[in-house]
Simulated assay, not measured.
Amino acid sequence: MLYLIGLGLGDVKDITVKGLEIVKKVDRVYLESYTSVLSAGKDELEEFYGRHIIVADRDLVEQGSDQILLDAVDKDVAFLVVGDPFGATTHADIVLRAQSANIKVEIVHNASIINAIACCGLQLYSFGEAVSIPYWTDTWKPDSFYEKIAANRKRGLHTLCLLDIQVKEPTPESLTKKIKEYQPPRFMTVGEAADQLLQIINRRGAGEMHQAYTKDTLCLGVARVGSATQKIVACPLQVMRNIDLGSPLHSLVIPGMMQILEFAYIKQFICK
Rank of each mutant, 00 (worst) to 15 (best):
A212M: 05
L7F: 08
I232N: 04
G50Q: 07
V17S: 10
R224E: 14
Y3G: 07
V239G: 00
P255W: 08
N202W: 02
V73T: 10
G87K: 05
Q67T: 15
A264Y: 11
D84C: 09
K168Y: 06
K177R: 09
K231M: 09
E169L: 13
A78I: 11
L160M: 08
A212I: 02
D14W: 10
C271F: 12
I54K: 09
Q67S: 15
R51F: 09
G128T: 07
C219W: 00
G156I: 05
P184M: 07
L2R: 04
I270M: 14
N102R: 13
S144F: 11
I114Q: 04
A193V: 02
R186T: 14
L197I: 08
I243M: 00
A56T: 13
A111T: 13
H109N: 13
Y125N: 13
L80H: 01
P172S: 07
V61S: 03
D138V: 02
P172K: 06
Q268E: 15
D57F: 04
Q230D: 09
L197K: 02
C120G: 07
I254M: 05
A92W: 04
G221T: 09
E44K: 15
R153K: 13
A212L: 04
H250I: 03
K272P: 14
Y30E: 11
A194I: 00
M1R: 14
G128Y: 01
E47W: 03
V190E: 04
A193H: 00
V108T: 07
P170I: 07
V73S: 09
I179T: 12
S33Y: 02
M1G: 10
I260G: 08
G64F: 05
I149R: 00
T217L: 06
T137G: 07
R186S: 12
E169A: 13
L20C: 01
H158M: 12
I114P: 00
P248I: 13
I68N: 02
K42F: 01
G121A: 08
L237M: 03
K267I: 07
Y30Q: 07
I200S: 01
V23D: 01
I254A: 03
N202G: 03
S100T: 14
L218G: 00
A72S: 14
L124V: 10
A40C: 15
I117W: 07
C219G: 02
G19T: 03
Y3W: 15
A194Y: 01
I117V: 15
G83F: 08
S126F: 06
Y34T: 03
M1N: 06
W140Y: 12
L197V: 03
K215F: 03
K148A: 07
S33H: 04
T90H: 09
A101L: 15
R155M: 14
T189Q: 05
I107K: 00
I149D: 01
V17A: 13
T90I: 14
K215W: 01
E129M: 13
D138G: 06
A212T: 04
W136K: 02
R241K: 14
W140A: 08
E32N: 05
T89K: 04
L60K: 15
H52P: 07
A151E: 13
L197Q: 03
V233L: 12
S126A: 15
A193I: 00
I94C: 10
V55L: 14
H210G: 10
I149Y: 00
D84H: 09
A206P: 10
H250N: 11
K141T: 06
V55D: 09
C119S: 12
L60I: 13
V55K: 04
I5H: 03
P85W: 14
Q238L: 01
L198Y: 01
S251M: 11
P255G: 05
Q166R: 12
